[in-house]
Amino acid sequence: MAVFTPVSEAQAKELLTHYTLGDLVSLRGIASGIENTNYFVTTTTGVYVLTLFERLTHEQLSFYIELMHHLAARGVAVPDPQSRTDGTRIGTVNGKPSSIVTCLRGASVMAPGPVHCAQVGEALARMHLAGADFPVVQPNLRGLPWWQETAPTLLPLLDAELAALLTDEMEVQTRVAAMPEARSLPTGPSHCDLFRDNVLFDGDTLGGFIDFYFAGCDTWLFDVAVTLNDWTSDPATGEIDMARYDALLQGYRRVRAFTDAEHALWPYALRAAALRFWISRLYDFHMPRPAQTLTPHDPRVFERILRLRRAADSFLLP
């Protein structure tokens, strides 16, 4: 959510003429993140978030915007894309696709406890079930095919040990994906990036999930693994806090029980989730894009998590 593309107040005022959201009061860039340009837009009717999409096309955006609209209509706490006066929900600013969504209350909790993790697990399961009848299908664009495309471009940039680790885990995940158990996993719209900074809490009460622009149709088990690797791991060591681990998974299970195939493949899902973010952070580290306000993420965080998940394959689902 860095500011890659500047937006002036004059441009924001012109954009608002295509909505019924009132007049512009203030415009403020959001500096965190690495993928899209985001601004807080305060108008005479409230506070919203304006996003300019740096990589996604209008066609790709339809999935994300309509998914959020679908979830919001079913009572899931997510940003609700606002309709323009012509009935559409995607515009254009500075040549980039754009959207304006409601701004949820709360702030990210970067040092969560079990009480936070339990609510995240429960809300994630409710989101999965609410999205099960969403009619639009788009794969996770950062799923296995992207790993297979991107990993070879990274190998020449890594030392021999890291290259061997990446190569071996890619081979493992490719084999697992072809297993009958993997093909039977429950699948549907998934957030795919539900890190601590993409969840808001109002005090100790969950405020909602944000930043759906890595969402896609994937196994729900992968989505749970992505979430758990961030919410329950120590960033400095990669070690899992078992109290938070149990709270998150029990919260999820209270809403949706895990299948036998999910139980069997859980250790591999934790590894896959770590691999996905190790690859993407290596890519962003070695092939950075310019931005006015950009905070790159350290790829070593997910290298450590991947090594630990590979060494310990005894993690269980409740």
Score class of each variant (00 low, 15 high):
T44H: 08
V120Y: 04
P97C: 00
A31R: 11
P267R: 02
R271N: 01
H263F: 09
R289T: 10
W231H: 09
A107E: 14
A77H: 07
L61H: 11
V3E: 09
W231Q: 04
Q148M: 10
T205F: 00
Y213F: 15
T167F: 08
Y64S: 09
R55N: 12
R300D: 09
D23F: 01
R307S: 04
N229C: 13
P180S: 11
P267I: 03
A247M: 00
A130Q: 04
L61D: 12
Y252V: 04
A151N: 02
S184F: 03
P112L: 06
Q119L: 07
R196M: 00
E262W: 04
D211Y: 03
G188Q: 11
R244I: 07
T57G: 14
V3I: 15
L21T: 01
S83P: 10
D204C: 01
D159K: 08
L265W: 02
N38D: 08
H69P: 01
N229Q: 10
T45N: 09
T150N: 07
V120N: 03
D202N: 11
P318R: 09
C117E: 06
F53Y: 15
Y19F: 15
T5I: 12
S233G: 14
T45R: 13
C217W: 11
F285N: 13
A274Y: 02
T102G: 12
D284Q: 10
Q60I: 00
E161N: 14
Y213K: 03
G91W: 00
F63M: 08
E303T: 14
T187W: 05
A2F: 12
F209I: 10
R126C: 09
W146D: 13
E59H: 13
F277H: 06
S190W: 04
P290K: 08
P318K: 10
S98L: 00
G203A: 08
E181G: 04
L141V: 14
V76P: 01
M170A: 04
P189I: 03
A311N: 07
D133Q: 11
A163V: 02
H297Y: 07
R84F: 02
A257G: 11
P267M: 09
D197R: 01
C117I: 05
K96H: 14
A111R: 15
E161I: 00
V115R: 12
L275T: 05
L61M: 15
L249T: 07
T174R: 11
L206R: 03
L265C: 06
D159V: 03
I240V: 15
D313T: 15
R196P: 01
S32H: 06
D246F: 06
D86C: 06
F258K: 02
L282V: 05
V78K: 03
R271S: 05
G75L: 00
F195D: 00
